[in-house]
Design a protein around this nucleic acid. Structure first.
Lengths: 208, 208
DNA sequence: GAGCCTAGTGACAGCCACTGACAGTTGACA
DNA sequence: TGTCAACTGTCAGTGGCTGTCACTAGGCTC
């Protein structure tokens, strides 16, 4: 049972998160001040910083949920799958089950808009990439454990994860700059690019 | 012939850069204020911001030179080389010719220390990754031109570059966390990891 | 139900990165 | 040598972020 205090807290946080994303996506991340976000929710600036470590933290609150979703999907993959295949299945599954997770916090449409804003705002893109490397470190350890190798002496887990992460980044970029900004679009882009990477690596494209 | 004014300017910039890197690497990036850097060179804070766009800009001033070095090396590779091979040769060549370029600005040892500081400071790591993606975009366009494909419709240039970039990142990380912090070490690590990536991608490691 | 405890909050002061405006200084060049 | 333009310092201000402190109100005990 949720106490009154907890309910108020959750509402304040949700309100701040929504207001933040709404302002970030409409008038831009840099052009939005924390004071503005706080004012939109009728709380003090100080209160904003009690719910979020910073402006950036608010921008990534939903992304954080989806990262957890992907990690859970990977952990659930059967042990007999090869590393790259497990990653592939997990990320596709992640895109499939994203909707309900996201919409428990904010409207799907707002999440998608925020995704675009992150890609197109240098400061946020930098933070996104740094966060991604943190996730990749977790992935590498997970794969190493699955395969029974030592992540600190065997470079293969980190190499595979880095390659995978690279393809995902290209996918994100293509998706955000493209026209079809739907979940289905990013899902099929992901599958397509993961398929093409091995062939792209070998030889000369002109003779392909 | 360098005029007196130009000489003074160059000296001020060099002085600021050195002081900045020295302070960043010894007492940490966040714990160093711009006022401190300026004071160490006996100029005003305002002057610092006339030479560098920001604190971050100073931290990456030397990295910027090495990026240009690598790009030049890639442009010089013969056209018959396959994309991945050209990238490989260019980066190894880059490590070989780094010393003179770096030492025209700061002592090699300071550059290496700063590299470590960048990897271990979240804010700088984020900036480093963002800068890397900018370089990767240039690389992709270069490869696409070399191979005569359109970078906007053919995903292969960006895919290959992303994979390459991923391996380089793993290399950097391993180098910075390792014991042997020399140029030779990073060179051989780079070669080794680029060799292993294709084999790491396929199949099951337990049967290898 | 009275009263205490504490989580949550607002108000305020302060640090630091960064910017714009303006004035003073000094090298370049006629 | 005087004029101009480049370079610099000073000052004031914005915005992200933190510490402090007092106050309000929900939750709990008796």
């Amino acid at each position: 049972m949720e106490t009154l205090r907890e309910r108020k807290k959750r509402r304040t946080r949700e309100s701040l998160l929504r207001a933040a994303l709404e302002l970030f996506t409409t008038q831009g991340y840099e052009r939005t001040t924390v004071d503005e976000i706080a004012a939109a929710c009728e709380v003090s600036q100080r209160t904003f910083f009690r719910y979020f470590a910073g402006k950036e933290d608010a921008a990534f609150a939903v992304q954080e949920m989806t990262e957890a979703l992907f990690l859970a999907a990977l952990r659930a993959r059967p042990a007999h799958e090869a590393p790259m295949e497990a990653l592939r299945q997990a990320v596709l599954e992640g895109w499939d089950t994203l909707r309900e997770t996201v919409e428990s916090a904010v409207p799907m449409e707002l999440y998608l808009r925020m995704y675009r804003t992150i890609e197109s705002t240098p400061a946020l893109l930098a933070a996104h990439l740094r966060r991604s490397t943190a996730v990749e470190e977790t992935l590498a350890r997970l794969l190493a454990e699955r395969e029974g190798v030592d992540v600190d002496t065997d470079p293969r887990p980190r190499l595979v994860v880095a390659v995978f992460g690279g393809v995902i980044r290209v996918t994100e970029r293509q998706w955000c700059t493209g026209r079809d900004f739907s979940l289905e679009a990013v899902r099929s882009l992901t599958a397509s690019y993961l398929d093409q990477v091995t062939s792209a690596l070998r030889g000369n494209w002109r003779t392909g």
